[in-house]
Design a protein around this nucleic acid. Structure first.
Length: 480
RNA sequence: GGCCUUAUCGUCUAACGGUUAGGACAUCGGCUUUUCAAGCCGGUAAUCCGGGUUCGAUUCCCGGUAGGGUCACCA
C-alpha cells in the first residue's frame, strides 16, 4: 500500500453530462477506480452538472452505461446513493451557498458588478496587448452587496507564488500571474467547477484527485481557495494527456475522440479496452507482460507508475490487445460473444467452430462480419477466374483437380459428408497431386471467393454437399 | 504573448549514474502448415541539440529547440 497515512483512500470520477464519454475521461475514471480498489477504498461517481447551458439530455445514463460496460464500478453514486448523497451537484446547491456565505463573511468573496460584455472588453484588450487576462486588474473599489443576481467572485488577497506537490509530477510551482479573482457562483445561481469540486471533495472526504494536466494551471487558484476556507487539499494526481492518433493534439471530443461505446459497437471487448487504456499513461515496469485482466490491473496499479508525458492513442495496439483477450476467453463466453455479432443467417451452431478458429486470427468478429468473410455461407461468391489458379499451376491442371475433387465429393454418401470424412477424401487427392496447394487453393477459393478464409474442409462441411458441389461446378465452368 | 509543463526505436514503453540501451505493436526476412491467413524464429530501428557536474551520463543542472496545457459566468 502506498497510502502513507493509513487514511481510507477515497477517489472520485466527476464528469459533466455534456455528451458522450471519450477515451480520456474513461482513463481518468479507470485510474481513480484502480487506485481506490487497490487500497480497499471508495470510488465515488459524482455528476458535475452545474453548466445548464452545455448539458446534454441523456448524458448521465450514457456515462453510467459506458462505465458499466467496462466494469468500472463505483461504491457511491447518483444511481445507488451512499453516505455522501446527493451525488449530483445540482442537488447540492445549499452546500455551495453555505460556503459562499462563509467566504463573503471572511472577506474572500465579492459581487462582480460588471456585465459579461464589459468583462469581455477587458479580456480582448489584454489579448490584443498579448498579455494574460487578469480580472483582478479591474476589480472595482466598492462592490455591491451580493444578492445572487450577479456573479460572486473569489477575492485574491494574497498575491504570491505557489508551490505544491503532485503525486505524479513532483513539485510544481506557479507565479502570481496564475492567481485571479475567479467566479465562485454564476449569475444563474449555480456554482462554477472551481468552487463546487472543492466543496464536494471536502464534504465527501476525497483523498486523491485524479485529473488531466489541464488543471495544473488553475491549481494555484484552488490552493488560494483551500487557504481561504482553511481546509487541507486532497492529494493531486495529474494524469498525462492522451494524444490523437495523428500525433500532435491532445485527444478531445473536438479532435475525433470517439465515444467509448463506439468501441463496443466495433467489437472490442471491455477487458481489452480497459487493458489498453490503463497502459496509455501507466506502466507497471518490467518487461514481457502486457495482457492484464481487470483484477491484475488492480493488483499492479501504483501511482508511481503513472507517466508524466503524454502518449498517443494507437489503435493497432488496441487491436492486438483485443485479439489476445479474445484468445483467453472460455469457449462458452466466446460463443456468446460470437452470437451477438453474427448476422441472423449465420446464427447456427455449426458455424461456431469455424469462427472460433478464425476469430483469434482476425482479432474481432466485427471485422470478420464487415469484411464479408462470413458472407460466403449464404451468398454465392463472385470472383475472377485467375483467382482460382494456384501459383504457376497450369489452368488445365487446376480444372482437372477441381473435377477430381468434384467426383470424390459427389461419391460421398450424404451421411458421411462431415468434416472428418471430407478431410480424408480431399487430402487423398491433394497428396497425390504434384503439390497440395494446386488442389486445395482452387477449392477453397471456389467455395469462399476470399483471399483469406477458413480451410476448404470446414467450408465444405458448413456449406453442405449440395452447395459445395454447385460451387465447384461453377468454378469449373468459369475456367473452361 | 505571459505562466506552467514535457522530450528513449515509426508507435507504446523499460532503465531509478556504470546495460552490447531491454520489451511490445507495426514493419521486413525466414521456418512451418492444408492455399491465404494465423503461429514460431530472426532482422532493421531510439536516448532532440549544445553546454556543464561526474572516473562515468538516457538518468542530475543550465541554455536552446520542438511539443502539450492554460489565461471562460466550461469542466
Amino acid at each position: 500500500m502506498d497510502n502513507e497515512s493509513n487514511q481510507k483512500v477515497i477517489t472520485r470520477f466527476a464528469p459533466s453530462p455534456t455528451g458522450f464519454m471519450h477515451i480520456g475521461g474513461i482513463r481518468t475514471a479507470l485510474y481513480a477506480y484502480l487506485y481506490a480498489k487497490k487500497n480497499n477504498g471508495s470510488f465515488i461517481l459524482r455528476i458535475e452538472d452545474t453548466d445548464k447551458v452545455r448539458e446534454v439530455d441523456g448524458s448521465i445514463d450514457h456515462i453510467i452505461e459506458s462505465l458499466k460496460w467496462l466494469g468500472i464500478e463505483w461504491t457511491e453514486g447518483p444511481d445507488i446513493g451512499g453516505p455522501n448523497a446527493p451525488y449530483k451537484q445540482s442537488d447540492r446547491l445549499e452546500s455551495y451557498q453555505k460556503y459562499a456565505k462563509i467566504l463573503i463573511e471572511k472577506g474572500f468573496a465579492y459581487a462582480d458588478p460588471y456585465t459579461e460584455e464589459e468583462v469581455e472588453i477587458f479580456r480582448n484588450k489584454a489579448i490584443e496587448e498579448k498579455r494574460a487576462f487578469l480580472y483582478r486588474d479591474h476589480r472595482p473599489e466598492n462592490t455591491p452587496v451580493w444578492d445572487g443576481s450577479m456573479p460572486l467572485r473569489f477575492k485574491t488577497t494574497n498575491i504570491k507564488s505557489y508551490e505544491w506537490e503532485d503525486l505524479v509530477r513532483g513539485n510544481l510551482k506557479a507565479g502570481p500571474e496564475a492567481l485571479d479573482d475567479f467566479i465562485l457562483i454564476k449569475s444563474d445561481g449555480y456554482p462554477t467547477y472551481n468552487l463546487a469540486h472543492i466543496i464536494d471533495d471536502l464534504e465527501m472526504g476525497v483523498t486523491h484527485i485524479m485529473r488531466g494536466d489541464e488543471f495544473i494551471s488553475s491549481t494555484p487558484k484552488f490552493l488560494a481557495l483551500y487557504e481561504a476556507l482553511d481546509i487541507e487539499h486532497p492529494h493531486f494526481v495529474t494524469l498525462p494527456p492522451i494524444m490523437g492518433q495523428d500525433g500532435k493534439k491532445k485527444l478531445g471530443k473536438r479532435d475525433g475522440a470517439k465515444d467509448v461505446l463506439e468501441y463496443k459497437k466495433e467489437g472490442y471487448l471491455p477487458q481489452a479496452m480497459l487493458n489498453f487504456l490503463a497502459f496509455i499513461g501507466w506502466n507497471p515496469g518490467g518487461d514481457e507482460k502486457e495482457i492484464f485482466t481487470k483484477e491484475e490491473l488492480i493488483n499492479a496499479f501504483d501511482i508511481k507508475g503513472i507517466h508524466i508525458s503524454g502518449g498517443k492513442f494507437n489503435e493497432e495496439k488496441l487491436d492486438w490487445i483485443n485479439k489476445e483477450h479474445i484468445k483467453k476467453l472460455d469457449n462458452d463466453v466466446l460463443e456468446k460473444y460470437i452470437f451477438e455479432w453474427l448476422p441472423k443467417e449465420l446464427q447456427i451452431k455449426k458455424i461456431i467452430p469455424l469462427i472460433v478458429e478464425r476469430i483469434s486470427k482476425f482479432g474481432d468478429i466485427k471485422t470478420m462480419v464487415d469484411s464479408g468473410e462470413l458472407d460466403f455461407f449464404y451468398i454465392e461468391p463472385e470472383y475472377q477466374a485467375e483467382k482460382l489458379i494456384y501459383k504457376n499451376t497450369e489452368k488445365g491442371k487446376v480444372v482437372q483437380n477441381l473435377n477430381d475433387t468434384l467426383d470424390s465429393l459427389k461419391n460421398m454418401k450424404d451421411e458421411d459428408f462431415n468434416l472428418e470424412k471430407i478431410k480424408i477424401v480431399l487430402m487423398e487427392i491433394a497428396d497425390h497431386a504434384e503439390n497440395r496447394g494446386s488442389v486445395l487453393h482452387p477449392l477453397r477459393f471456389a467455395l469462399s471467393g476470399l483471399d483469406k478464409s477458413p480451410d476448404p474442409f470446414i467450408l465444405s462441411d458448413i456449406l453442405g454437399k449440395e452447395k459445395t458441389i454447385s460451387r465447384i461446378n461453377k468454378a469449373i465452368s468459369i475456367l473452361s
